[in-house]
Write a protein that binds this DNA or RNA. Structure first.
Length: 371
DNA sequence: AAAGCGTGGTT
DNA sequence: TAACCAAGCTT
C-alpha cells in the first residue's frame, strides 16, 4: 500500500476519527428501516438476520430500487417463507411472482440456487463469501453482502453506492469499471472487522441517502472531513464512468387474439435471451427500426379481420422497442406452447411489463371502440 | 471481456 | 424528452 502515513485512513490511533467509526456512529442513528434488515441496535444484542431473507433481498436489489423491491419481497416471503419451500416451488410459479421486477434470469437463478442449497448444502447457506460465490446468481457483490450481513465475515462489500462513496473519498479519477479493484482495496482498508454487516449497510445507506449521484448532501455527511472530492469542490463528478453505447431502436408487431369464450392467446418465450421463459402474445421478430407501420402479413393465419389498436413503446436495457398492437376475435387452433388465458387468470401469468402494456392497449382500444 | 439482460423513478 | 441511474450476474 502506498498511502501516506498521515492520511486518516492509515492513522486510526491519531486525532482524526477513522472513517469506519464516524460512519458507524452515523449508521447507528440513521439506518434505514427495511423489511429484510435487522437494525444496528438489535445486531449489537447479537440478533442475526435470516440468511434466506438476506439472500432473497440481495438478489431482488440487484440493479433495482428499494422502493420496487419491497412489495415483491413481502410477496415472496409470504409465498415461500424459507429455502425449502422455494426449492419445492415450480419455476413457472417463481417467474409469475417475479413478473414486473425485471432481469428475469435472476428469478431462474433464484430457483436454481434454492435447489442447490437444499440438495448440496443440506438447506443451509454456505457461510463464507468464497463458498457463496459458487452458487447461481451470486457474484462478487452478493456473495460478500450475504457473508458480511448474515454471517459477520469481514469482507468488503462493493456495490454501486460503495463505488460512488469510495471514489469520492479518495478522488479516484480512473473510470469504472477499471477502477473496481482499487475501490475494493480502499474499502477493505476502511472496513471495521468488528461490524462487517453494519459497515456494509452503512456505506450503502450513505450512498443512497446522502452521497447521491446528483446534488450530494455533503454538509450532512459523517465523513465529509475525509472526502478528497469534497475538498476539491467537485464530488458530483465521481465516479468517472466509461461512456455508454447508443441505444438502437427496434420495431415489431404484437397480435392480441381473443377467443370468444376462452380468453387471450398466450405463449411462452424460449429458454434463453431476452425475457427468457416469460409469457407473451404472438409477435413478429423485433428488428432494427424501419419507418412506417407494420402490417398483419406476419400475423397468425386464419383471422378474417384485424383491428389496429395503436402502438406501445418500451425501453429495455440495450434497445428501445416500438410494438404495433393488433387485435382480433377468433377461434384459432392452438400451436405447441400456446394456451388461452381467461380474464380471471391473466393477472397471474408470467407477463413482463412490455406485454402488460400490449394487453392494456388492446383492451383499452376495444373499450373505446365499443363505447 | 464486452455485451446482453427490465423496469421505474429522477433530473 | 432523453439521459441517467438503482444493493450486478452471466457468458
Amino acid at each position: 500500500m502506498t498511502l501516506s502515513m498521515n492520511h486518516p485512513f492509515h492513522n486510526p490511533g491519531g486525532k482524526t476519527m477513522p472513517t469506519s467509526a464516524a460512519l458507524l456512529e452515523w449508521y447507528d442513528r440513521h439506518a434505514r428501516d427495511l423489511p429484510w434488515r435487522i437494525g444496528p441496535a438489535r445486531i449489537a444484542k447479537g440478533v442475526r438476520p435470516d440468511p434466506y431473507r438476506v439472500w432473497l433481498s440481495e438478489i431482488m436489489l440487484q440493479q433495482t430500487t428499494v422502493a420496487a423491491v419491497k412489495a415483491y419481497f413481502r410477496k415472496f416471503t409470504e409465498m415461500w417463507p424459507d429455502i425449502e419451500s422455494l426449492a419445492s416451488a415450480d419455476e413457472q410459479d417463481v417467474l409469475k411472482a417475479w413478473a414486473g421486477l425485471g432481469y428475469y434470469s435472476r428469478a431462474r437463478n433464484l430457483k436454481r440456487c434454492a435447489d442447490a442449497v437444499v440438495r448440496e448444502h443440506a438447506g443451509r447457506f454456505p457461510q463464507t463469501a468464497t463458498a457463496l460465490r459458487e452458487l447461481p446468481g451470486i457474484g462478487d457483490y452478493t456473495s460478500a453482502a450475504i457473508a458480511a450481513i448474515a454471517f459477520g465475515e469481514a469482507v468488503p462489500v462493493v456495490d454501486g453506492n460503495v463505488e460512488r462513496v469510495v471514489s469520492r473519498l479518495h478522488r479516484i479519477d480512473t473510470p469504472l469499471p477499471v477502477a473496481k479493484k482499487e475501490i475494493r482495496a480502499k474499502a477493505a482498508l476502511m472496513l471495521d472487522p468488528a461490524r462487517p454487516g453494519d459497515f456494509a449497510q452503512a456505506m450503502m445507506d450513505l450512498g443512497a441517502t446522502l452521497c447521491t449521484p446528483k446534488r450530494p448532501a455533503c454538509m450532512h455527511c459523517p465523513v465529509r472531513r475525509m472526502c478528497r472530492a469534497l475538498a476539491t469542490g467537485d464530488p458530483e463528478t465521481f465516479p468517472v464512468k466509461a461512456p455508454r453505447r447508443a441505444k438502437p431502436r427496434r420495431r415489431g408487431a404484437a397480435f392480441v387474439i381473443e377467443h370468444p369464450e376462452k380468453g387471450w392467446m398466450l405463449e411462452r418465450r424460449g429458454g434463453s435471451g431476452l425475457l427468457a421463459g416469460m409469457t407473451q402474445v404472438p409477435t413478429t421478430a423485433w428488428t432494427a427500426r424501419q419507418d412506417g407501420t407494420t402490417d398483419t402479413s406476419e400475423a397468425p393465419a386464419g383471422v378474417s379481420r384485424w383491428r389496429r389498436c395503436g402502438s406501445i413503446r418500451h425501453v429495455f436495457t440495450h434497445f428501445e422497442l416500438e410494438l404495433d398492437v393488433h387485435h382480433a376475435v377468433a377461434e384459432l387452433p392452438l400451436e405447441a406452447g400456446q394456451w388461452w388465458s381467461a380474464s380471471d387468470e391473466i393477472g397471474g401469468e408470467a407477463l413482463p411489463t412490455v406485454m402488460k402494456k400490449v394487453l392494456a392497449l388492446a383492451i383499452e382500444s376495444k373499450l373505446a371502440e365499443n363505447s
